[in-house]
């Protein structure tokens, strides 16, 4: 009895507990997103959309707190040659798709959604309208 009251320590370490919470949050974000896409009622869809956003925010906070506490090993950076390779390959894919669009639709321009703050001004000066195109 006394021992039980005094023994407040968990069998799991703090890192185990935090890691468990983090991985569950990742799963819950996916489940909320799936629930939103499969909802029929607008109000239920809206609820699941909000819950997706909120849970994603919680997961981000948990990840940052764990990273600051040195509980998380960040993935190693991708190599320059890998970036070059993928950029080249998808540049080609894009050209082929643009040709396909030209043939089928008579040509339409797309705008990138990827516009990081730091690069924005210099890129804008260089090509006037779009970035990373």
């Amino acid at each position: 009895m006394y021992q039980q009251q005094q023994q407040k320590q968990s069998v799991l370490t703090e890192e185990d507990l935090a890691g468990g919470i983090l991985s569950d949050l990742k799963r819950i974000v996916r489940e909320y997103a799936t629930a939103a896409t499969e909802s029929t009622c607008p109000d239920i869809r809206q609820l699941f959309t909000k819950l997706t956003d909120n849970t994603l925010a919680l997961q981000g906070q948990m990840f940052q707190a764990m990273q600051q506490a040195n509980m998380y090993n960040t993935a190693s950076p991708a190599l320059r040659q890998e970036l070059d390779k993928q950029a080249k390959q998808y540049q080609q894919t894009k050209q082929k798709t643009n040709q396909f669009l030209q043939q089928t639709l008579g040509g339409q321009q797309s705008q990138t959604l990827y516009t990081p703050q730091m690069q924005q001004s210099s890129q804008q000066q260089q090509n006037g309208q779009t970035h990373y195109m």
Partner: peptide
């Protein structure tokens, strides 16, 4: 289907509450 998702979600939220409480208590 929506009811199933809602029920599963409440189980998830409940489990998170308990896991967070364990972390608060022992961390």
């Amino acid at each position: 289907k929506e009811l199933e998702y809602i029920a599963d979600s409440m189980s998830n939220e409940d489990a998170q509450i308990k896991q967070c409480a364990a972390l608060v208590a022992t961390g």
